[in-house]
Design a protein around this nucleic acid. Structure first.
Lengths: 293, 293
DNA sequence: CTGTTAGCGCATTCAA
DNA sequence: TTGAATGCGCTAACAG
């Protein structure tokens, strides 16, 4: 019988799945793969899932409107579970429960339906950044946010705003970008017309890098002397020496590991109550902000 | 019957696949997802395949040695085809033919077994870069290559060496990196100890960016006045204003589109002769090399 | 054109 | 322990 194996025989996983009702496939749904942060997440997820004997069925959304057709495919393929970094409506969330498909949200929360999720704590992270900048003398803040329909983006903007308000800083100008370098560059170009701005908080690193270039190359700013800039994520280019961005690094490894184990917990024990796990980021003291304290 | 659909019924693609012998899944195998270039490729592939009604089963290799277990999974899952950006042995290539699984190599070639592939022409690209640099007065070239076991890396290094030899430039120093920023940074640090070097050719953009930072921040070079640097790929960060790298951009959209249509051609017509499609890159005249001509 | 049946490749059950 | 039968959800080929 082992001879058959030498002949190239491999059990048909598709047929196996039909009978065991376990396809061995996990849907990974990511809304903007081109964001520098997500390839890292995807790589970790793929490795981690592979280590637990599962395969990744990948879905990348070009726009959030595609999510319905994507979910349609997800149902057809009988995936054992899904890890989702995209906006899901309450209806869509309920469908997962109704169909008994395990689900973990990545860096998103649900206000309505209870659902398992992992996320990086932004409030504490933003607070740390904001407090440090205030303590070092920044007083005219501006924010570069994501699109208003982005959960992550809004959360980070609000986290920063809250902390600024706590320090008595209100009416902070906000410009929005699409999380891209160019988006950050353009947003900063609009913001820096106001010469008093001496601190920019960006909702992610890539936009912060664009903002840095606009500030120093077009506006003649010295960073961090005349302008502080901070980001969020801790992507690889933020560490590059031409930038050396001050930012909060998401613990990608721990988050993906957690997402995977939560997913398998659900699969093995279907009526497990959903759990939310929050990880705190780690401060990367780059050279783009003087952080006192 | 349409009422059943409202009830949430979706045909079981797994069962469909069992009988039609078409799973609707394409394996995408990528060796180093963390390389900045590949997320873009993956995004395009996923979109394109989705547009043709196929789903992506993703495999990311941490090291080339995992390829065998990966292929094992590929066979089990009865994928309709595979797009592979990883090193495959002749044996492995033959197995695809033997099992009748459609296959397109991405940016790799096979010398032995005939197999369909798409690739970006490096020789002409490197020639363009090299000629331009020579014409503008560079005469002490150095090369930053990839690991010796990387097909793409070696091809690009050899492309550059050939062209340099044609101009009578021989004994060009080569240092190798792992395609990462740090790898390029370190390689440049070793190369630039020789003060005569006035031109660096990097096997990819990310290493070129690392080399730029080493050159200007540690060695006090003015780019491109005292040192020219060119890369290959055309990744997003290469266009960032702090770098503005001179490079050859791979036509990712055309290449992925071609890979997908070649794959489907094979699927629909199994005994189609393999075709190699070569695309030429487009020169991006950044600011890191003065290119005469 | 609608209704029935067989079988895709397995895992699981039951009989031997 | 080994061997044969059943069925997972569907499609295709067939009969009515």
């Amino acid at each position: 019988m082992a001879a058959a194996d030498e002949l190239g025989y491999r059990p048909n996983a598709i047929a196996q799945g039909l009978i065991t009702r376990r396809s061995g496939m996990i849907a990974v749904i990511i809304s903007n793969l081109t964001n520098l942060h997500y390839p890292e997440v995807l790589a970790e997820l793929t490795q981690g899932l592979s280590g637990r004997g599962a395969r990744v069925l990948l879905f990348a959304l070009k726009s959030e409107s595609e999510i319905d057709e994507i979910l349609d495919q997800v149902w057809r393929y009988q995936v054992d579970g899904a890890i989702v970094a995209a906006r899901l409506s309450d209806d869509q969330l309920s469908t997962f429960k109704a169909r008994g498909t395990a689900l973990v949200l990545y860096n998103r929360q649900s206000d309505g339906v209870p659902v398992a999720s992992v996320a990086c704590e932004f409030a504490a992270g933003e607070a740390l950044l904001v407090d440090g900048m205030i303590a070092s003398g920044c007083c005219n803040f501006a924010i570069i946010g994501g699109p208003t329909d982005s959960t992550v983006g809004e959360a980070r903007v609000n986290g920063a705003l809250d902390r600024l308000a706590l320090a008595g800083l209100t009416s902070v100008p906000i410009e929005r970008g699409d999380f891209s370098y160019q988006g950050g560059y353009d947003a900063a170009t609009r913001l820096l017309k106001d010469k008093r701005i001496d601190a920019i908080i960006s909702a992610n690193d890539t936009m912060a890098l664009g903002a840095m270039d606009a500030a120093r190359l077009d506006f003649g700013h010295q960073i961090p002397e005349t302008l502080s800039i901070v980001g969020f994520d801790g992507v690889a280019p933020a560490k590059w020496r031409s930038y050396d961005l001050t930012t909060m690094r998401q613990p990608v490894g721990r988050m993906t590991t957690a997402a995977i184990s939560m997913l398998f917990d659900q699969i093995e024990n279907p009526d497990l109550g959903p759990e939310k796990r929050l990880f705190s980021g780690s401060l990367i003291r780059g050279k783009t902000a003087r952080l006192a304290g």
